[in-house]
Measured scan of single mutants.
Amino acid sequence: MQRVNMIMAESPGLITICLLGYLLSAECTVFLDHENANKILNRPKRYNSGKLEEFVQGNLERECMEEKCSFEEAREVFENTERTTEFWKQYVDGDQCESNPCLNGGSCKDDINSYECWCPFGFEGKNCELDVTCNIKNGRCEQFCKNSADNKVVCSCTEGYRLAENQKSCEPAVPFPCGRVSVSQTSKLTRAETVFPDVDYVNSTEAETILDNITQSTQSFNDFTRVVGGEDAKPGQFPWQVVLNGKVDAFCGGSIVNEKWIVTAAHCVETGVKITVVAGEHNIEETEHTEQKRNVIRIIPHHNYNAAINKYNHDIALLELDEPLVLNSYVTPICIADKEYTNIFLKFGSGYVSGWGRVFHKGRSALVLQYLRVPLVDRATCLRSTKFTIYNNMFCAGFHEGGRDSCQGDSGGPHVTEVEGTSFLTGIISWGEECAMKGKYGIYTKVSRYVNWIKEKTKLT
């Protein structure tokens, strides 16, 4: 034993070699072989497995989906700052455009905790909710729209109204504003409101030439003092309507412009014939205590009207009353817009006519005020429907199939267009061939041609 100890002390290297040989010859039971080890760690190889990531292109799944990435790591994937920024906006807080917040056709661009709407022409605001041009839906104005110097929408209202708090709607500024039905039992019968379409306001006024200088022999019209197929109006439903009495009662109609003036057809009036105007009328054979009678003290036909040349060209006249009318729910003026808007309103496509005229061709006159909704007829169809001249200051309205029309005794009465609950004068009943005849239409004086003249002559002093 002493000898062994001496050998170990003198030859430590020998001992180490012996131990190493023993270990190498022993069977290893701690580690699995290569094949079995792979069965336990069965993990798919990654895209760049075996390579240094710093030297390969980034992978979106590896960089940002398996674990949260930084902007720089995302930049490695896209290799483009702009594309990385677009991805980053949604990656950080989701897609803010998912709810489609942009209105009126706006395009949404996502941002971090926010979004941006790219608005089409005519709109602005956070969600493109603000109209900035009158060309689109009248700028959301209830009545009139004008573009300011910086191309912003400025709404306005006709006389007797003021802008509401929203700067879009119009509200009454006087007790009985024009064009409004205020009798409670008839307010439910107000005709369907007309909503502004998209309009090209630059070209809204037709490029028409008034044929002022045409000389033409007097034409022989049949029954051209021209509501057939209409309905009984309720008291106060058309408070701007008046009836004219002269040699015979209810020979023509008219509309209240203001307390002192009536507008009617020029062919209705004769110099030297006494005319009485009755406002607030409903049943011409009954006294309903809503009527107001006034005498006409002055007749002003349009300066281009000449019955000797043509009885229905420039067929418009103004009547001055001896005493002002007292405005109330049964006696209310009709609204008159400017030339541009009167023309736009007419193009809405349908209007209402009213009167006490004959209820059928050569038949009896109506006792109760009649009204009828009539569609506008395109000019080409209008011209083809008659052998008589249709001037540019006239328009056609009615039904091709016949059966409904204005008729004798309705002449001078109103053709009105309702705009968001307020009625505007767009025409004056003038003439036609018979009444409600198939293929024939009622012919009306186009008020847009005469609004400046009306307003100039009827100013209240």
Score class of each variant (00 low, 15 high):
residue 348 F to C: 07
residue 35 E to T: 13
residue 40 I to N: 15
residue 195 V to S: 15
residue 459 K to G: 09
residue 185 Q to S: 10
residue 340 E to Y: 14
residue 203 N to K: 10
residue 158 T to S: 07
residue 82 E to F: 04
residue 150 D to H: 10
residue 127 N to L: 05
residue 387 K to C: 03
residue 56 V to G: 15
residue 448 S to C: 03
residue 287 T to Q: 13
residue 171 E to W: 07
residue 319 L to M: 14
residue 320 E to R: 02
residue 414 P to V: 11
residue 426 T to R: 01
residue 343 N to D: 15
residue 187 S to T: 14
residue 223 D to A: 12
residue 169 S to D: 08
residue 141 C to W: 00
residue 14 L to I: 12
residue 108 C to S: 00
residue 138 N to F: 04
residue 295 N to T: 10
residue 17 I to K: 02
residue 246 G to A: 09
residue 190 T to V: 11
residue 236 G to K: 06
residue 364 R to K: 15
residue 364 R to F: 06
residue 395 F to G: 01
residue 403 G to R: 04
residue 138 N to W: 06
residue 174 V to F: 04
residue 382 C to I: 03
residue 255 S to W: 01
residue 211 L to D: 14
residue 125 G to S: 02
residue 81 T to V: 12
residue 23 L to M: 11
residue 89 K to Y: 06
residue 4 V to C: 12
residue 140 R to E: 14
residue 351 G to A: 10
residue 302 H to S: 03
residue 267 H to R: 06
residue 104 N to M: 02
residue 188 K to T: 05
residue 208 E to M: 10
residue 388 F to G: 08
residue 111 D to E: 06
residue 425 L to C: 00
residue 384 R to C: 03
residue 119 C to V: 01
residue 27 E to W: 03
residue 259 E to M: 05
residue 6 M to D: 08
residue 212 D to W: 09
residue 310 N to E: 06
residue 166 N to R: 02
residue 451 V to K: 03
residue 59 N to D: 14
residue 380 A to V: 09
residue 396 C to F: 02
residue 214 I to T: 15
residue 111 D to Q: 07
residue 129 E to Q: 11
residue 401 E to W: 14
residue 62 R to E: 08
residue 52 L to S: 15
residue 329 S to N: 14
residue 146 K to Y: 12
residue 30 V to D: 14
residue 446 K to R: 09
residue 377 V to L: 10
residue 439 G to T: 09
residue 360 F to A: 08
residue 348 F to V: 13
residue 133 T to W: 05
residue 300 I to D: 02
residue 268 C to P: 00
residue 239 P to M: 01
residue 219 Q to M: 13
residue 356 W to Y: 14
residue 438 K to I: 06
residue 363 G to P: 11
residue 19 L to R: 02
residue 329 S to P: 14
residue 34 H to C: 04
residue 73 E to S: 09
residue 390 I to K: 06
residue 332 T to R: 12
residue 458 T to H: 02
residue 339 K to Q: 14
residue 381 T to W: 06
residue 261 W to V: 02
residue 125 G to F: 00
residue 348 F to L: 08
residue 446 K to C: 04
residue 37 A to K: 09
residue 134 C to K: 03
residue 209 T to W: 08
residue 66 E to M: 05
residue 65 M to I: 12
residue 340 E to T: 11
residue 182 S to K: 05
residue 142 E to Y: 04
residue 449 R to S: 11
residue 245 N to Y: 14
residue 76 E to D: 10
residue 216 Q to H: 13
residue 305 Y to M: 02
residue 84 T to C: 04
residue 341 Y to T: 13
residue 151 N to V: 08
residue 81 T to R: 11
residue 457 K to R: 15
residue 265 A to M: 02
residue 297 I to M: 08
residue 104 N to F: 03
residue 123 F to P: 01
residue 406 S to V: 05
residue 96 Q to P: 07
residue 368 V to A: 11
residue 435 C to D: 04
residue 226 R to N: 14
residue 396 C to K: 02
residue 56 V to Y: 09
residue 456 E to S: 09
residue 56 V to H: 14
residue 211 L to Y: 07
residue 285 E to Y: 07
residue 170 C to Q: 00
residue 194 T to M: 14
residue 169 S to R: 11
residue 460 L to N: 08
residue 5 N to R: 09
residue 379 R to N: 04
residue 327 L to V: 07
residue 48 N to I: 05
residue 315 D to N: 09
residue 394 M to Q: 11
residue 3 R to W: 11
residue 334 I to G: 00
residue 373 R to H: 13
residue 38 N to Y: 10
